[in-house]
């Protein structure tokens, strides 16, 4: 409805908000109070967490200590590098395979009708069912893990790219042809820019799915990387160490999510400006 208001060219009001008593709106005070509540919770956890059975829980200062241990022994760095290596390879193959396959399926109706249902099924069904088979075929190796990350990540990309190619505005292609563009030029100037936002969305989903796939792979396919470190720690009831690994995973997840958001925003630039109308 706001869109309609702006579309008819009348002075909109949204830049100014009615003066009103603030009830929990964003403000410095709210931010500080939230910070204070978290500080209080962490302090309370640290004080009372010491009395809880250490096999079932931990507390902040123990977690910090464990982080120091894991960092000094080099275990954390090894695990992190191992995980990132597997994830990076898996995502690389995802990109290499997902773009052309997605493009082909979106472009050629015949391929879409033949293999589209399979892509949809593999997109929606739980991929984890293939883990034992991967172990059977490729052993408890990095190869198995990379393949699993690839399987987790590739279908969202294929699905979105195909969707993008299908939804290229046909009139744009016709305009290009009316200006004498040939097939290749049309792809270059119309199709490709049109599907960039879809590639962005697909890549973002692929990264998130790839990370989940990585953790699952490191749980099931040999104990390795961050997932392995996490499982080792919890098998030994070292909850302090387990929390360290989880926090590292949060950090990795955060950085990857930011990267995904940036990619989505950057590739979808023209779309965002269209949405503003």
């Amino acid at each position: 409805m706001t869109e309609a208001t702006e579309a008819n060219g009348l002075a909109p009001l949204p830049a100014v908000r009615p003066r009103r008593k603030r009830s929990g709106g964003p403000g410095a005070l709210t931010g500080l109070s939230v910070l204070a509540i978290y500080a209080l919770l962490i302090a309370a956890w640290d004080v009372f967490g010491r009395d809880v059975n250490p096999y079932f829980s931990s507390y902040p200062s123990a977690i910090v200590r464990a982080a120091g241990e894991l960092a000094r022994s080099g275990e954390l760095a090894t695990a992190l590098l191992g995980s990132l290596g597997v994830l990076g390879q898996g995502l690389l193959y995802t990109l290499a395979a997902g773009l052309p396959v997605g493009f082909a399926i979106g472009r050629y109706q015949f391929l879409d009708r033949t293999f589209g249902p399979l892509v949809t099924i593999l997109f929606v069904a739980p991929r984890e069912v293939f883990v034992p088979l991967l172990v059977l075929w490729f052993g408890l190796s990095d190869a198995s893990r990379v393949i699993f990350v690839f399987l987790s990540a590739v279908f969202p990309l294929i699905y979105n790219v195909a969707d993008g190619v299908r939804s290229v505005n046909q009139s744009h292609a016709e305009i290009a042809q009316a200006y004498g563009a040939n097939e290749w030029q049309t792809i270059q100037e119309v199709t490709f820019p049109s599907i960039l936002p879809f590639i962005g969305v697909g890549a973002k989903q692929a990264i998130a799915r790839g990370l989940t796939g990585l953790v699952a792979a490191e749980f099931f396919i040999g104990v390795s990387g961050l997932g392995g470190l996490l499982q080792k720690a919890s098998a030994l009831y070292r909850l302090d160490r387990a929390f360290v690994v989880i926090l590292v995973l949060v950090a990795v997840g955060f950085i990857l999510a930011r990267a995904g958001d940036l990619m989505e925003a950057r590739l979808g630039r023209w779309r965002i400006s269209e949405r503003a109308y």
């Binding site: 009001l13 830049a15 100014v16 908000r17 009615p18 003066r19």
Partner: peptide
Amino acid sequence: VSFERPEQPDAGAFRV
């Protein structure tokens, strides 16, 4: 009736 402008809070209220 006045509005305040969140983008420039120091400018004071804007009298509509």
